[in-house]
Amino acid sequence: MAAVESIEILSPGLQTTVQDLGRFGFGRYGVAPSGALDSFALRIGNLLVDNPENQACLETTLLGLRIKALTDVLIAVTGANLQPRVDKRPLEMWCSHILNKGEILSFSGPSSGCRSYIALGGGIDIPPVLGSKSTSLPSGFGGFQGIALEAGAILFSDSPQAKLVASHRKFEPKWIPTYPGKWIVRVIWGPQDDDFTEGGRQTFLKSSYKVSSESDRTGIRLDGPLIQRKADIPESIISEGLISGSIQVPGDGKPIIILGETVSGGYRKIATVISADLPLLGQIRPGDEIHFISISVDEAIKALRKMEIRIKHFKERLSDKASKREKIIP
């Protein structure tokens, strides 16, 4: 495997980081997972460019990213539609394309969703830290020197020319997620739902919450009707572990959906977003509206299985095609 200069960041836009599926197994040291907020988009992007699912990609937020190919490289853009263009031409998303040396891929702004993923054939050649290439912005390590990408950064890929043959791969159109701006997010009650009044729990389910502009990779802050705690219950708890998708209700009664940049917290958690809906959280943007519905653990696992089966089917289809191709080429 030879590492080759594959792309240069001309402008990072609002925020662009290197992310893979995250860093697990170090929670005991306070090390959060980080990782792609929309893991579904990242996995499909990698498969489209013939990478392992967990390869690192660029995660870019809302607008402004411009990158230049330093060699011919296979790319796929998945996740939010931030209106990607190659030079002046619109680029079809959820599909692999060759970005020719010298061509510029740019993102002018969101028509739906919040974060796009750019997968590069041959991945991003940077050393994993604690088992992952994801950037931890709060702790300043991993990814590209522990920071968000800046103009002038050059990224390397492993033998990108070997992946060019996988161009024109397409994800199943019927399975491409839509990002409506009005979201229904499925949750499981708890672990501290009993600390809220029945009225408070109803408020949580019946209200429409608006996503605050203070949201970022650490959490989605919501504005809307306040969720009442029971009278004898203090606002904080003894700090304990939490996961991305935990919905904390601090003293002010406004819920916050925790994303993957912390391992612990000291507020009560009324509910937890189901695993199958976690990727959607990465596509929610300020101003969007969220409605929560509660489901059972069994239903949540069914939903997760459904998502995994789609990915598995897509992989099988790709490997069928690849084996056919091998038969044609002697």
Binding site: I238, E240, G241, S275, V297, I301, L304, R305
Partner: peptide, 26 residues
């Protein structure tokens, strides 16, 4: 639990009075 390496367990986060066990439900 860390020593046991139970298949499917992804991470363990011990805290003051609780232990969070993160796992793959599939």
């Amino acid at each position: 639990l860390d020593h046991q390496e139970i298949a499917g367990v992804i991470d363990l986060v011990p805290s003051y009075r609780s232990l969070l066990v993160i796992y793959n439900p599939l």
